[in-house]
């Protein structure tokens, strides 16, 4: 039990930055390029960790606190989410709510740190971030509530150990969670992580003024966030079908990588949505969750 928890934590902490590498390699492969190294995110984090820092003269202590709280909250979320078919470090009835709100805390501080610089670009990014998040939150919790109804339990760990994706309602929920995953991790069609214009960025522009270790914390925190949300989706998709730990672990990691490949394919296949359309897509995610719940309840 203990060992499984520690493996999961370690797995997340070590492998999280790999996801963005896989996404980028997939995109490169589709575009016919060679692409950056798989471990590029690790190199970036390492490079930033070794640097000094530049702070804006406008910024206060909150600017420095933002990345710290963001990283800590992402690690805390990692402790609540079960992975590879085994229990989370801490499981209790209603932990899905805590999970969503811990991520909310990280976002709150990131947004405040962005506003602390006084830059209108960062203000704009912050404004869009809270806008999208406010609409993604109901989709996330409604989706998880549907899974809770389907499995009859309120803790993520038990949910994931009893859920299985072969019921059509859960497929709907998975679609909703997938949309939330893309939104929360600032992927296309919500945000383009590779854009070069401040006006068009959302997450990237919020952290424009961070540098050095602070920026490394942000990058690592973002990777962890993608990992925890991904492991939620994979957990619902992939039931605990075997009692053999190594097999489960391998399947889990494989599924996570597959998820990253899927994201890469989506990014290659579509463009960013107009900002006007984003609320519609997020509303669609909520609608999918509600529809799934109605089907489960009926």
């Amino acid at each position: 039990m203990q060992a499984a928890v520690f493996t999961n934590l370690a797995l997340g902490l070590v492998l999280a930055p790999l996801l963005s590498g896989i996404i980028n390699r997939t995109k490169a492969a589709v575009a016919g390029r060679k692409g950056q190294p798989l471990l590029q995110a690790y190199f970036d984090i390492y490079k930033n960790l070794r640097k000094g820092a530049v702070y804006s003269t406008t910024a206060s202590w909150l600017f420095r606190a933002g990345p710290v709280v963001g990283l800590a909250a992402a690690v805390a979320a990692l402790c609540i989410v079960p992975a590879s078919g085994s229990a989370a470090a801490l499981a209790f009835a209603g932990d899905l709510v805590l999970f969503a709100y811990v991520l909310g805390l990280a976002r709150f501080f990131t947004v405040l740190a962005a506003l602390d610089t006084g830059s209108s670009f960062e203000g704009m990014g912050a404004s869009r971030e809270v806008f999208f998040a406010a609409l993604a939150e109901p989709a996330l919790l409604a989706g998880l509530a549907t899974v809770a109804r389907k499995t009859g339990t309120l803790s993520l760990t038990e949910m994931i150990s009893t859920a299985s994706a072969n019921s059509p309602e859960l497929v709907l929920v998975l679609a909703a969670l997938g949309i939330v995953f893309l939104c929360e991790n600032c992927r296309i069609p919500f945000d383009d992580p590779t854009t070069h214009l401040e006006l068009t960025m959302i997450h990237e522009v919020m952290v424009l003024d961070h540098s050095g270790p602070d920026f490394a914390f942000i990058q690592y925190g973002a990777a962890l966030k993608a990992w925890v949300l991904g492991s939620l989706i994979v957990g619902i998709l992939l039931p605990a079908f075997s009692s053999s730990r190594p097999l489960m672990l391998a399947c889990f990691v494989g599924a996570m990588f597959l998820l990253a490949v899927t994201v890469g394919l989506i990014e290659s296949g579509m463009a960013r949505l107009r900002l006007l359309r984003v609320p519609q897509l997020l509303a669609a995610a909520s609608a999918l969750s509600v529809f799934a719940f109605m089907l489960v309840v009926r």
């Binding site: 519609q280 509303a283 669609a284 609608a287 529809f291 109605m294 009926r298």
Partner: peptide
């Protein structure tokens, strides 16, 4: 609007499920 339409659609769906029963 589109979002209110979807919300209305969900309400209609609820009504349909209820009526169907």
């Amino acid at each position: 609007g589109y979002i209110p339409s979807v919300i209305a659609g969900l309400a209609l769906l609820g009504a349909s499920l209820w009526l169907g029963a």
